[in-house]
Every structure is written in structure tokens, then in C-alpha cells.
Amino acid sequence: MQAESRLTFRFYLIVCTLLLVVVSALSLYIGAVKIAPQDVLSALTNYLHITDHEPGRYQSILLDIRLPRVILAIIVGAALAALAVSGAAMQGLFRNPLADPGLVGISSGAALAAVIVIVLVPSIATIPKSLNIYLIPLAAFIGSLLVTLLVHQLSQVHGKTEVSTLLLAGIAINAIAGAGTGLLTYMADDTQLRILTFWSMGSLGSANWAQLFFAAPIIITALIGIYFYAKALNAIALGEAEAGHLGYNLESIKRRLIVLVALAVGTSVALSGTIGFIGLVIPHLLRLFIGPNHSKLLPLSAILGASLLLLSDLIARTLVAPAELPIGIITTIIGGPFFLWLLLRFKRQGSII
């Protein structure tokens, strides 16, 4: 039975990886300007110094616009797959399959903190981009950390997580953060409004190599850190008392997971704005096929989350080309009906736990 489980996991791992490779390739050569596969390959081999041809006419589009955007989509999608991975971690930590970083207010808290910096920090538009790269993600991380700690505290009743309290706290925090963002939007000038439009619906349009060099180590560190707690999340799923009997220091684990989730979510929101539902859809979809084992769920969530974000970005770039739809619209169209189906499924079972 265990050998069969390993074989099933490897099969889904291969399928998800192949899907990511295919969607990445499609994202490189499909867009407002369609580039032939051989031109994509030629530009990449030139960039990696494998070949030494004259730069093609599409090389700048590929290397300066599409390639950083694809890589950013992968790492943010493996962090919005850390919204999938941290979605899985949140669901395991709170023992609630509806606990999603966007749903319980963490993403909106990160966005509000970033918007506060954009609007209230004097002359942020004149601050060098090199400083903006650090300032806004730091604010988003602090915002997501504070909201995560608040939600965790509010959802505790006699030392146990109350699902109804968790969801109600998330609704309240989303409303408060939305009101704060709306107020700051009203106060913003024209330059700040253009920046704030990015946060409202999400986009990968600002992707560049400087962002990647800053964000990739942070997000990858958070993903690896979350994965190290896979066995602890499996134990927590059995119940906090059982996890304690197995020797896990639950309060320490919770604090560390909260920091890792906030780090992943805050950095993601800082780079891409608020993109909803990926952290809800991916982990739960995978549970239907591979079960609740976080050692398998977390890596597959990262890969499939990256693929879904890449695919959503591809649709957003091409559906109304040469214009571009906000990526948050695409993920909500996918995730909204899934969330309703999830609610109906749990309603038939008589519980949302």
C-alpha cells in the first residue's frame, strides 16, 4: 500500500512538473507579439552563452519582459503557491480546509501595509527603485505577520481553533483592510493612484530582474521552511492533544509557521498585488487525489500553484491583447465557483471542518 502511494505521488509529481514546463514554454512565445519556438530557443541559448548568434529582433521582448515575468510567476505562484503552499500550511495549522491567506485577511493586511507606504511615506515616487524594492515588501511582510498573529489569537477559544471565529475574523479584517485601502486611495495623488491600481486586482506586469534577485531567496527560503514542518502539520491534523503527545512543541511550531507564511504572503503581495483563491483551490484539489499528507501535498501545491498562476497570467495577457486583464480577475473566475462547490460539498456533509 505504501509502495502504491509512493508511485501515485511520483506520477502526480511528474504530471505537475510537465504541466509547469509546458505552460512556461507557452508563456514565453505566446503574447501580444507571437514568437516562434525556434526564436525563443535561440534567444535563450544566446543568453546562456550556449550559442553565439546575432541578437534576434525578439530577444529584448523575451529576455527583458517575458522571461523575468515567467520566472516571477513561477516563484510567486510557488509562493502564491506559497499562497498554495501557505494555503496548505494554513489549512493544516488551523485544521480548517477553508483557511486561505486571502480568505482570512492575511493578503489584504499585507496589501494595506504596502499601500500605507506608497501613500504616506513622503515622496515615495521619487525614492530610487532600489530602495522601493526593499521598502514595500518589508511593509507587506509586517502587515501580513500582524494580521496572521491577530487572526490566530482571535480564533483561539480555550486553547482550540474555532472555525466560525476564524472565518468571521477574516471577514472583519478583510473589510477593515479594504476600507483602509479605499481611504488611502481617496487621499492618493495621480502618480500614487497609478501605483495603487496594481494592488487592487493583481498583476505581474512590473516583473523585472531586480525584483527577482530580491524576492527569489526570500520566497524559496519560506517554501523550504514550511516544507520542514510537513510532519508537524500531519500531527496537528490529528488534533493538538495528539500532536503534543507525539512530542511536538505546538506553540513554537505555530509561531514559526506564522512567520514563514507571513514572509511568503507578504513578499508575494508586494510583488504581484492581491491575487485570490489560489491558496484555496490548489491544496484542496490535490487532497482529492493524493490525500492529506503534507509531505506530498506541499511540494505538489507549489508546482501546481505555479502552473495555475502562469496559466492565469497567460490568459490575462492574451485574452484582450494587446491590452491586459488584471490577473486577479482570472484567478477569481476560476476560484470563486470552486469555493462555492466546496461550501456545498461540506454542507452536504453537515460540517465545514
Rank of each mutant, 00 (worst) to 15 (best):
D190R: 15
A188I: 06
D64W: 12
T267Y: 08
S107H: 07
I74W: 01
P299T: 11
F277T: 04
S155P: 11
L112Q: 04
F228V: 09
N46W: 08
I333P: 04
L308R: 00
H152A: 10
T191P: 13
V15E: 01
L298Y: 12
K347M: 15
A237L: 15
V76R: 01
A73E: 00
K129C: 13
A99Q: 08
G239A: 10
R10L: 15
F289Q: 11
H49G: 13
L166S: 03
P326T: 04
A316G: 01
F214I: 05
S351I: 07
I71W: 02
R287Q: 12
P122I: 08
T17Y: 06
T45M: 11
F9E: 07
S108R: 07
L310C: 00
F198L: 11
V22T: 14
Q156A: 09
L250I: 05
G239F: 06
I218C: 04
V76P: 05
C16S: 10
F11M: 07
N132E: 15
D190Q: 14
F141E: 13
N234W: 05
L26C: 09
L280Y: 03
T274E: 08
R6E: 13
I226R: 00
Q59G: 02
L168G: 04
T148M: 09
V265P: 03
N249L: 09
I14S: 05
G350R: 14
A188H: 13
A78H: 02
L308G: 00
T185D: 11
S295C: 12
R256K: 14
H53K: 15
M90R: 05
Q153A: 14
K160C: 12
L48H: 11
T318S: 10
H284T: 09
T267D: 08
A139M: 06
K34R: 15
L138E: 09
P337H: 06
S130D: 14
T221D: 07
A207P: 08
E162M: 08
P137Q: 12
V70N: 01
G335N: 05
S86N: 06
I136H: 02
L19Q: 06
V151Q: 02
D39N: 14
I275W: 05
T267L: 02
S252P: 10
L93T: 03
S268N: 10
A241C: 13
L257Y: 10
V157T: 15
A110P: 10
P299W: 01
G178I: 06
S155L: 04
Y47M: 14
A302W: 01
E251F: 11
L309G: 00
I327C: 03
L19S: 06
S268Y: 06
T191S: 15
L48F: 13
R6C: 10
D190A: 12
K129Y: 15
S130T: 15
T148G: 07
A175C: 11
G105R: 02
I171H: 08
S295H: 12
A215K: 01
A82R: 00
L344W: 14
L246G: 06
G182D: 13
V269F: 00
V265M: 01
R66I: 11
F94H: 05
V104Q: 02
N174A: 06
S108E: 12
S206V: 13
A73I: 10
I173W: 04
L309D: 00
G202P: 07
P322W: 06
Y134N: 05
E4C: 03
T8I: 14
N208R: 09
L168P: 05
A207G: 07
K254L: 01
L149C: 09
R66F: 07
V117Y: 03
